[in-house]
Design a protein around this nucleic acid. Structure first.
Lengths: 229, 229
DNA sequence: TTCGGGCGTAAAGATGCCGTTAAGACGTCT
DNA sequence: AGACGTCTTAACGGCATCTTTACGCCCGAA
């Protein structure tokens, strides 16, 4: 298991104190921070570094903040939170309709900003990639709970699927009978090894090219089973 | 192109003037509005009607607003915008971390609220990258919340639509009864599998060419259902 | 070689789930 | 308040699945 990559946040503000305050607070929470002090620099750094979220001050010298929002929205859906001293409704409406995700009025509390930041990031999390286990003869789609053998799919009963899934998630490793029994049937089933024999036979009949001589679902006599890729 | 279904908004507030003001303004913008004046009613109506967005007052009699957020987040990802007189950072942080999407302090400008509402709804669109799901026999228009079978459209009840939509958005994957029950009826309905049997029968009667031998809405005995394209 | 434990296979019975139907409850409009 | 659409609830037959039992094989140990 690798450590997750830090979430990258681009902070855009022309006031050095605010940049610094955000930098310190965000780094303290484990975010990676990139800083920009103008709209041009913001667009440039966003294109170069692809941040996971943008904190954007509206009152920038040069390009207006709203135009930064439009510039970003032209090519990316990165979440944008506006920081601004402007309290007027018109400004908020314009920023939000330009594509900003949230609007926080300065001065703001750091805890509120962090909470809004978490809320925004939470919404933008992409779905985890769907794991599949492939062999030469069939494909196990763990997310769809489905097994494909060539073009047509193989129908597994609930118990059969539970066994296959557990073995596939521990592919290559030896799984003891007790592990399987407890995972599929519950803690009190420790010694009903005949269940396993019966169901393994059914599974092999459906998945193995030659069920009587298993290639994938290997029996380790006296110990358990092993799913060989 | 068919007329898109109106966006349904659930307004939760115990003050009649605010309910009424929101009701009028939202209807004027073409939203369909559902009203609730307590947390209990909010949870109940949300489960019954599946709104597209919830406007929630924190200062409710009975259940606290935060608990309403938690109650909803237990089973649905519907966007929630908090309306509150409480300005303290702690309240905002608590609400956002409980799963709210935005926080607006009363008194608020109607235009700002509408802009935040649009921004929140826009953000939730990416969840529907495919507006239509097509089979040989019918077309599911996820945006318009409508099903067309050939030329004429099939009328689905709210519950039926909720089931079809969930299955269509997870096309090909196996959806457990528990997933469906929690998404359609709420968290406390984990074991009422007879609901599913009854409604699936009704849906099949409307969509399947041969309802007694389903081609699209496949039952996986003991596990759940699968929408086969 | 003989014996016994562990395993694979097959088939029959038991179990629980699913589809179907219909009636009553509920909520929402006119 | 009444009528309509919709949801809930219960009952039942049919069927998929699981359990249980029996038997034969293989292989290592005596």
């Amino acid at each position: 298991m690798t450590t997750p990559a830090p979430i990258r946040i681009l902070v855009v503000d022309d006031e050095p104190q605010i940049r610094s305050a955000l930098d310190v607070n965000l780094r303290a929470r484990g975010y990676a921070v990139d800083l920009a002090e103008s709209g041009e620099e913001a667009l440039h750094r966003a294109a170069a570094h692809h941040p996971d979220l943008v904190l954007l001050d509206l009152g920038l010298p040069g390009i207006d903040g709203i135009d930064v929002v439009r510039g970003l929205r032209g090519w990316t859906a990165v979440p944008i939170i506006i920081l601004s001293v402007r309290e007027s409704e018109a400004d908020k409406v314009a920023a939000l309709d330009a594509g900003a995700d949230d609007y926080v009025t300065k001065p703001f509390g750091m805890n509120e900003l962090l909470a809004r930041l978490r809320a925004t990031l939470r919404r933008h999390q992409p779905e985890a990639p769907q794991p599949t286990v492939r062999t030469d003869d069939f494909v196990i789609d763990l997310a769809a709970k489905r097994v494909m053998r060539g073009e047509d799919d193989v129908h597994l009963t609930p118990t059969e699927w539970a066994i296959v899934e557990y073995l596939a998630r521990h592919a290559g490793r030896l799984v003891t009978q007790r592990q399987l029994l407890q995972h599929v049937w519950g803690p009190q089933y420790e010694s009903e090894t005949n269940y396993l024999r019966v169901h393994l036979a059914a599974i092999r009949k459906k998945l193995e090219p030659n069920p009587s001589q298993p290639r994938y679902l290997i029996t380790e006599a006296g110990m358990g089973y092993r799913f060989e890729l």
